[in-house]
Design a protein around this nucleic acid. Sequence first.
DNA 1: ATATAGGTCTTGAATCATTCTAAACAATAA
DNA 2: TTATTGTTTAGAATGATTCAAGACCTATAT
Lengths: 136, 136
Amino acid sequence: MKQSCLAPSEIESRLKAAGVQPTAQRIAIARYVLCEADHPTAEQVKSWADANFPKMSMATVYNTLNALVDAGLLKKHAFPHLNEATYDDNITEHYHLLDEKTGRVFDLDPADVKVTTKLKGVRIKEVDVFIRGSRA
Amino acid sequence: MKQSCLAPSEIESRLKAAGVQPTAQRIAIARYVLCEADHPTAEQVKSWADANFPKMSMATVYNTLNALVDAGLLKKHAFPHLNEATYDDNITEHYHLLDEKTGRVFDLDPADVKVTTKLKGVRIKEVDVFIRGSRA
DNA sequence: ATATAGGTCTTGAATCATTCTAAACAATAA
DNA sequence: TTATTGTTTAGAATGATTCAAGACCTATAT
């Protein structure tokens, strides 16, 4: 489900294009969340950074993730089964499946999950669907 | 949307029937959340208690709400737009609409919101739908 | 090159929701 | 009445996240 990893220079261009100054920390985090990670939490980003970057503070992890979300490169999800946020590089419309056997979250294509409403007098802006279940 | 309020004695029976010892605090909280409140947070239950019960600690509010959830009388929701949990006396299957104009959450009848999936190899246990929008 | 200005990063404190702990307090059963 | 068990309480502890202040860069203009 993950595209092959982008070079730092490509990440840099993406950050610039989105109006985010490409610092070393931001490039490292962006590369990890956009290319390597799967629905990581801030804590997981920090662990990765501790192992792969000379020195990074937790505040920088949060600042950077927030900056990437604000720039539209990342989406922040608050899943009901976790008390920490997760970050998703899939910014197209999609839903989520929690496999309760493994605790892993999978993206669901809107083609596979349709929501139809009969609501009147409601202007719908966004629909979140979160399915709990288990995969065979 | 709220049924007319139940007498304390009726609440007491309901608690007993659900296997929850009916203490004064539990009856008071249960009556408030089952009859009066609308998707309250623990903080709102505490505020109500401060105004309507001689003395109640925050721990008791949380303990009681958890007990009611465990007993199946209440459902706990973690909505993505709030960082605190809300409690819902509607324990039948239903979905939620956040009116972004007012911040209020409305219950949606499953008859008005249908979710159909084409997922294969997935045993679905529960589906959460959370719609953001605004009401006319 | 140099200075300046404006971001950026770090540490550590602060905040907020929630749970834990230990002690005080019923209520009940023997 | 005493023992047992469950409940409530105040306050400490936890965990996620944000805030604050100063140190540190880096881009640009001179």
